[in-house]
Design a protein around this nucleic acid. Structure first.
Lengths: 225, 225
DNA sequence: ATAATTACATGACAAATATCATATTTTATA
DNA sequence: TATAAAATATGATATTTGTCATGTAATTAT
């Protein structure tokens, strides 16, 4: 397992603010974990005693609604720190995390992170900025959910995934999700998702190969209402 | 205008973590502002050069959706700090703030707050905790918006307002909102809101006097699906 | 390789919600 | 107080979305 101070992944998250000495210390107590597609990393209500630094793979953060359906709140990829929020507020997680493909992560115990938060104000400030940004994203998501049609939300989800997680060599979205996952992101019934994707395909906005999706007409997708 | 170090309001927000000396310094540079019902405190996209500490009154934080409708993201009352997020991330606000009744606020310049954030790690940590909590609330709101019916969301909004902002002597919700405001919180058309409130009234779940609303059957409201 | 399971797809219909029209009531203003 | 303007109310109707049923394709397990 590579050392934190040499790890490229930390450049994408708040850990980059730590000094070399701090990183060496953190590195010494971290443990490597891997998860296979579908594995539950943690579940809503659990107490986390540390944070996960994602080295590879993607997972979804979900919350069980009162009506029994799961809602995807966020997709998390390489570089992000998982479990920050509940560690900071010292509460059990409000979300579940499930691997969407095979994942490599480092687990850093709570005590280590708290030490850094208490000792390195620059680090705390960086985490704070990070969280401020997440809060802004959350506001945007809420407005989209409240004001846009299912079709529009699905179109935007496809565009979001392409923009943030990229495509493979053939142009297909590199994150492959089930229709059910898409439904759970958009907040709709699986059948509705399937229907709309079929329509998009018919209209030449996307093409598919198995579960893989390729965006064919980005501009038209953006114009969906 | 009262002094920060003696102000009771600060007990409800992150300012309570500041030392007496810091509070005296902050107090010296703050300016009092008041707004009348309907006044715009700031608008989406503006650069804020400070935060507002709310001493009295209520305001709504809204965001303009691409379809031209305003969405209420949050209601803010006495004790809360307004403008924290954009100050921390050093970006323009992503939300507009509009007074829902007459408001008394203190405006604390950005430089003061940043000084405290840089000098007092306990304060930073407190702001961080605050923000972690807001993020949790945001997750919950998203799930509610995505998974619950308009009727259910409206019922919960009424219960939320009663719980968090209380009632007047006659039992009416102390925050008086227009039907349009309720629609904008719930994310629906004004007519739908009016219809559902009429139904609630008919079913004896609420009663009204002008724009004022009184919850008559809390349990039944909670049971709405 | 075949059976069993799961995911995807689509039709038919029901329910929820939006939109438009138009009263009526309330509130603000001359 | 009279009048205008805004907010509330409600009907009629269109649109969107959900639900249930059923069939097909793709995966997974035996």
């Amino acid at each position: 397992m590579s050392k934190c101070e040499q790890c490229i992944v930390k450049e994408f998250n708040a850990l980059k603010t730590l000094t070399k000495e701090e990183l060496i210390r953190v590195s010494a107590c971290k443990t490597g974990k891997h998860y296979k597609k579908g594995d539950v990393i943690f579940e809503e209500g659990e107490t986390l005693n540390g944070v996960f630094c994602i080295r590879d793979g993607v997972c979804k953060l979900t919350k069980l609604s009162e009506n029994g359906k799961d809602q995807v709140v966020k997709l998390i990829v390489k570089g992000e720190l998982l479990g920050k929020r509940s560690l900071i507020s010292n509460e059990s997680t409000n979300l579940s995390a499930v691997a969407l493909n095979d994942m490599e992560m480092c687990f850093i115990p709570k005590s280590e992170i708290m030490l850094d938060l208490n000792k390195n104000p620059k680090f705390t400030m960086d985490v704070l900025k990070d969280m401020a940004h997440e809060l802004k994203d959350a506001d945007d998501s809420l407005v989209n959910m409240a004001q846009k049609s299912v079709k529009q939300r699905l179109a935007e989800t496809l565009l979001y995934i392409e923009k943030n997680f990229g495509t493979d060599n053939d142009g297909y979205l590199s994150i492959v999700l089930s229709r059910e996952d898409y439904a759970s992101i958009v907040g709709t019934a699986t059948e509705s998702t399937i229907r709309i994707l079929s329509q998009f395909k018919k209209d030449g906005l996307i093409s598919t190969a198995g579960k893989k999706i390729k965006i064919e007409d980005e501009n038209e997708l953006k114009r969906i209402e």
